[in-house]
Each structure stands twice: as structure tokens, then as C-alpha cells.
Write a protein that binds this DNA or RNA. Structure first.
Lengths: 299, 299
DNA sequence: ATAAATGCGTGACTCCAGCTCACATATAGC
DNA sequence: GCTATATGTGAGCTGGAGTCACGCATTTAT
């Protein structure tokens, strides 16, 4: 039974040729040369031990045997195509769920969400707040957007978007008391930070050439917040100098609610798109591309 | 539409795996290793951008998407298999028509036809008298059995079975007047021959070292017959010495109706099986094999 | 008639999809 | 614990399937 099945590619070539009535046309449909199709047809003839086409003028026509085969195959192949198309449609019409930390969601993604929807409508994007520290483990999300540091686990796809930059920000009033040329003046204020990024201040300080001991002393008198939202409000209120990803405070810097006296520094972390399963790449690729271009124009 | 079709072999691997519920079992059915199937499944996952199987214990189960695809594919593939099987059955159940010259048919094939039918029943052999001089041109025959000389046209398959042998035969009474050691004594009798093989006597005479001029003189006084049947009857009746393929007079030699005083000589012709179309080889191959073995045991 | 265009078949060559092999990993049963 | 079963995967090899170029047959245009 099984050994009686000819190569499937030959059957496909036959079906296309029979349907179109031309080797050349079938070759075009299958994106190969007519020679390739011709060989496939010959191999089918040999497999079945009977001619399926005969020459007619400069073209070909089906023999009775060929017609019989065609009538069955065309049905089978159209069912095959339908099944694949149906699955593909199902997959593509399902919403693409992007998980994202609340701070990134609120301060960067949501302002761009409308344009994203308009420019990639076929994604049917839904966004959710990521509920775990491990970006790859979010099983109900198609992808996760997050800042994270290499190395990444081998069993997930991680697309690097841009390096993370962080900056120290303060209200304009407070900044007026600080020296843009001397980061040291920072220590005259209270240090503000989020609990989720304890390494931010040390990284910044080390990049600015500040003493580690002095920083630690200042940090112990500093103030931590649960969420970036509160941190920003505290900074705006002039409670002290906050450390935050530059990407998330750009709007505040532009509007003048906050200033960053000493500029930004780059960290070893990256803004990444995590793809938990190795699959649905063609849906995530346009998203990754969009994110990259969006991040490029913004900077 | 077309570019959305995944590789057919991957679909077949998926269908088998889904049907059997096991990669290993599918691999066995497809006569490949489980690794090969595993890769095909992975490529399908990537094509559709969705997992079609998920791990369950040490085996696998279909995901909802996988089940959906399977339900369509199993139908399509069974239709495909049915179509191919139906065609194959049609071809194999059609009678195999063997064309053959009347003399060969009557004096060699027919006596063996009963055994041939019994030993190759699936051939459903029919025999017809060939109606053309060109063995390959018999369009209504699946194959033609005939003596013929190389070279053969390039567009037909010709299977050589055995070299042709010819011999000069006479009735025992007439042969008593001839000298087995001296072919020359032949010329004391009338030469008998068939119109279809004018070159037989010259070939035989040349092999026996007889003079060409003497032969031609004798031939001009000889007697030609339309068919081998009449030639044989003339020889049996003692009208003269006939020249004929050894294969076709073996029974007469064995029974003593005729004798061949000077033995047989080999000619450049061959008993051949002509296959007009390059197809149905698997049906003609057993026949060719049978013919060869039959010819070997007979000699 | 002659020339050009169209369509199919095929020899020679190339290349990569798909296979095997071997090993890794994970689960089930003892 | 150990063993058997089942799937995943890196490395490497091979033959099937493709391309190219040409030949042949037929149709259409000049």
C-alpha cells in the first residue's frame, strides 16, 4: 500500500499540469523550470507504468488514464490547500498578545499603540502587563517586551532591539541646585529608585566615576518605590534625583517636567523582544521591525 | 496562495504522526528514522507559526491547531492514496497484449501459453498476431516478441532474449541422401525458404563455407513460401531442404519429423521483446524474465 | 517557403533538502 | 537506583530535484 505511493512532488506537478493543460504553465505556477516538471511527469509515467499525457500538436493532453488520476488528485490537492489555508488563517487571525512590564507599557508603548495598530493591523495586537519576572515564561503571551541582561536562555528566541540607557533625572527646581559638570553634587540630594532595578544607581555611579562607598552611603538614605510611576511623581515633586531608563522619561524631558543634568549612560541591558516558542516568527518579525524603527526615530 | 503551501513531505509526515500518535511509528511507516520525521514536524511548526504537537509524558499529543489540520489532511491524503491505488489497479488489471509473428506464435509460444498463464496470472496476458513489420510500431500491443537485427531505434526499449539460430532441415528420408559431413550435398536438392527471411540461406551458406555463386544458382531454382507453416509441411513432405529458426523446429527435430544434418548456426539477429512505450516496465520485466528462463531450459 | 515563436524532452551538471547516525534529554516502569 | 522507551538535535553525507542549454516538433507570421 505505502510503497505504491509515487513521490508527492510528482503528483503535485501532475495535478498542476493537468489542471492548466500545459507543462510550462504548471512550471510557472510551481516556480520551477518546465524541465523540472517534465521530469516529474516522466517519473510518474514510469511509476504507474502507463502514459498519463500524450502529445497533441505542440502541447499535451491527458490520456484516459491521466484523466482518471486527475479527477481524484485535483480534489485531494484542493482539500490539502484548503486545510493549510484554513490553519494559516486561524493562526493569523488569532490576536497577538504582547506582554510588557507596566512601566514600559504606560510610558512608552501605550502612547504608540494607536499608530502600531494602524500600521500593523493584521497583527490584531493585544497588550497585557507581564506577570512574571521571567520574560520567556509568560505562556499566555505571544511575545514579551522587556529590558533584560544577557546571557539569555538557549531555548527561547530573544531579539535585541536597542541598548538600555539610564539617566538621573530631577525636577527643574532641584536641578538648578546641581552642577551639570560635577555628578558629585548629586549626593547633596536624596537618591530615588525603583525596587525592581537595584543595580541602576551603582551602574550609573560607576560610569560617572563616583566612589562606590559614597554611593552606598547615599543609597541607604535614599528612597525606593514599587513602581516607576511613583518614582516619577516623586522626582517631579522634587523629592530627590531618580534613576530611570532614558526611554521612559523622554517625554518628561521634552516637556520640561524633568531634566537630566548629566545625560544618559548605556548599560549592559537591552530592550528585548522575547519569543517563548520558536514559532510564529513571521508575525513577530514585523513587530520587531516596527519596534526597531520606532526606537530609531525616537532617539 | 501557492506560497502558503508547506512542503508536501512535511505534511505527509505530520499526517502519519497524527494518525499513529507517535513519531517513531510514523517514521516506521514512512521507512525513515524518527529523527527525519521530527525535523519535518518542526519545519511544519515553523511554517505555520504554531505548535501542532505538544509533549505528553514521553510521547506527544496534537494541539487544538494540530487536530484541526489533521482532520483535513487525513481526508486529503486518503483520497490521494485512493486515487493512486485506483490507477495502479486499473493498469495492472488491464490485459497485457503481446504481439508476435504467426510462426513464432504457433510453433513456440502457443505450446507454452498455458504454463505462462499459470505462472504469471497477474499479467492477464493476451496474444495477438503482429500485423506490421516494425515491431515497435504495434500501438495496440503492450509488447512485441520478434526476431530482429540490431541496431534498434533509440526511442523504444528492446530486451534481447537469445541469439537467433537457424538450421537447414529435411525429412529423414531426404536427409538419408545427404552427407552430414559435406554441406555441398545440399545442392542436390531443392532449397525451400520463406519470403520473410530472404537472407537466411546466404547467411547459412556463408557460415558453412559454401560458394555464394553456387548458392544463388540453387536459390533461383528453389521454392519460397508465404509462411513458415507451409515451409515446414513442404520439408516434411520431402520437397527439399528448408532453412528455419532452430527454435521453431525443435519440436519437429525431437519427434523425428525433421532432421538437421548440419546442425545450427548463430545469426546476428536476436529474439527480442520490444516495448513500444518506455512505460509499464514492471509488467514486462516478469515476462522477459520468464521468457529468458524458458529459452534457457529449452536449449 | 521561409523564418520566427512556442512548447516539450533530455544530457550534463550542481546543490541543498532531507536523510542517517550518534548522542542528549526526558519520562515511565521496575 | 537502573533500564527501556520516546523525542529532540548537531554534524555530516548523499541522491533527488532543480537549472541550463540545447534539440526537436509544430504552429503562426511574414
Amino acid at each position: 500500500m505505502q510503497n505504491s505511493m509515487p513521490p508527492l512532488s510528482a503528483l503535485r506537478a501532475f495535478e498542476a499540469t493537468a489542471r492548466l493543460g500545459s507543462v510550462t504553465a504548471a512550471a510557472e505556477e510551481l516556480s520551477v523550470t518546465h524541465g523540472a516538471v517534465s521530469r516529474q511527469l516522466k517519473s510518474l509515467d514510469e511509476h504507474f507504468g502507463v502514459a498519463l499525457f500524450s502529445k497533441a500538436g505542440r502541447g499535451i493532453v491527458l490520456t484516459p488514464h491521466g484523466e482518471k488520476l486527475q479527477s481524484g488528485l485535483s480534489e485531494a490537492f484542493s482539500k490539502l490547500r484548503d486545510s493549510c489555508a484554513a490553519l494559516k488563517r486561524d493562526v493569523e487571525e488569532a490576536p497577538f498578545t504582547l506582554a510588557c512590564p507596566g512601566s514600559l507599557l504606560a510610558r512608552w508603548l501605550i502612547p504608540r499603540l494607536d499608530r502600531l495598530h494602524r500600521e500593523l493591523p493584521e497583527l490584531k495586537l493585544k497588550v497585557v502587563v507581564s506577570d512574571t519576572e521571567q520574560p520567556g515564561k509568560q505562556t499566555d503571551a505571544s511575545a514579551t517586551l522587556a529590558f533584560s541582561e544577557p546571557p539569555w536562555p538557549a531555548d527561547v528566541d530573544v531579539i535585541e532591539l536597542i541598548p538600555e540607557q539610564i539617566c538621573a533625572v530631577a525636577s527643574p527646581q532641584l536641578a538648578a541646585q546641581l552642577d551639570p559638570a560635577d555628578p558629585q553634587t548629586l549626593f547633596s540630594t536624596q537618591l530615588l529608585y525603583t525596587a525592581s532595578r537595584p543595580q541602576a544607581w551603582p551602574q550609573w555611579a560607576s560610569a560617572q566615576g563616583l566612589e562606590q562607598a559614597q554611593l552606598e552611603a547615599a543609597l541607604s538614605e535614599g528612597q525606593g518605590f514599587e513602581h516607576l510611576y511613583y518614582l516619577m511623581e516623586a522626582a517631579v515633586a522634587g523629592l530627590g534625583v531618580a534613576i530611570a531608563p532614558t526611554l521612559l522619561v523622554e517625554d518628561d524631558l521634552k516637556s520640561g517636567r524633568l531634566v537630566a543634568p548629566w545625560g544618559s549612560i548605556e548599560t549592559s541591558a537591552r530592550l528585548c523582544l522575547w519569543l517563548p516558542n520558536q514559532t510564529n516568527n513571521h508575525r513577530s518579525e514585523p513587530l520587531a521591525k516596527w519596534l526597531k524603527s520606532e526606537l530609531k526615530t525616537a532617539s
